[in-house]
Computed example of a mutant assay.
Amino acid sequence: MRILQTRDTMSEIYLAAVKIRNQVFVKEQKVPLSIEIDGNEAYAIHFVLYDDQKKPLATVRLLPLDDTTVKVQRMAVLKEYRGKGLGKILLQGAEDFAKEHDFKEITLGSQWQARAFYQEMGFKATGEPFTEAGIKHVTMIKKLAD
């Protein structure tokens, strides 16, 4: 397994991320493509987890909100690879990147059914549930440093 990242929206890594996101969010979850690809693409750091045969299996992006906080977005694992711990590997890689770049906090909007996964990874729910793209979510936060 290997995680690669990019900010280049013309790169192979970014294109692999978009392909995974299209499969998971647009095709499976029926999120409109018009909101799945947004104005933050060029500002985010896109991560893709590849297997040993260089096949892209999962993706996530980090969007810096300010000098101390990044937001986890567009976390997706291809259906046939779910339940194998790949999400944990990928999220840990993104978290390590955030720490290396001196971010102090990670936030995210978890889909309701995924909140236990994020709790297991150290995130805490905050605030009331909300709906985004027709899907129930909750805001979650994890402190990276004191």
Rank of each mutant, 00 (worst) to 15 (best):
M1N: 02
M1P: 02
I3Y: 00
L4Y: 11
Q5L: 13
D8V: 06
D8H: 03
M10L: 10
S11Q: 03
E12A: 08
Y14W: 11
L15S: 11
A17T: 06
A17R: 01
V18S: 12
K19A: 15
R21M: 10
N22S: 14
N22D: 14
N22H: 15
Q23I: 15
V26L: 09
K27R: 12
K27H: 14
K27N: 13
E28R: 00
E28T: 08
Q29Y: 08
Q29H: 09
L33I: 15
S34I: 11
I35T: 10
I35M: 10
I35N: 04
I37Y: 11
D38V: 07
D38Q: 05
G39R: 06
E41A: 10
Y43P: 00
Y43Q: 15
A44F: 11
A44L: 11
I45C: 09
I45D: 06
I45E: 07
H46T: 08
V48S: 02
L49S: 03
L49Q: 03
Y50E: 07
Y50M: 08
D51T: 00
D52S: 12
D52Q: 10
Q53N: 14
K54W: 07
K55Q: 15
P56R: 01
P56G: 07
L57Q: 04
T59N: 05
V60Q: 00
V60W: 00
R61Y: 03
R61T: 07
L62T: 03
T68S: 13
V70A: 13
V72Q: 01
V72T: 04
V72F: 00
Q73W: 08
Q73P: 09
M75D: 05
A76E: 09
A76Y: 08
A76D: 10
A76S: 13
V77R: 02
V77C: 09
V77W: 00
L78G: 08
K79N: 14
E80H: 06
Y81V: 04
R82E: 09
R82L: 10
G83D: 09
K84Q: 15
K84T: 14
G87A: 09
K88H: 12
K88I: 12
I89Y: 05
I89M: 14
A94W: 02
A94M: 07
D96F: 10
D96N: 14
F97R: 03
F97L: 09
F97N: 05
A98V: 01
A98Q: 01
A98T: 03
E100T: 11
H101L: 09
H101M: 09
D102V: 10
D102Q: 13
K104R: 14
K104H: 13
E105Y: 01
G109E: 11
Q111T: 12
W112V: 12
A114R: 03
R115Y: 12
A116P: 06
Y118A: 01
M121W: 02
M121I: 09
M121A: 09
G122R: 00
F123R: 04
A125S: 06
T126P: 05
T126W: 01
G127F: 02
P129F: 05
T131I: 15
T131W: 07
E132K: 06
E132S: 09
A133D: 13
I135N: 01
I135F: 01
K136A: 15
K136V: 14
H137A: 13
V138M: 05
T139H: 15
M140W: 00
M140G: 01
M140Q: 01
M140L: 04
I141R: 03
K142V: 04
D146V: 07
D146N: 11
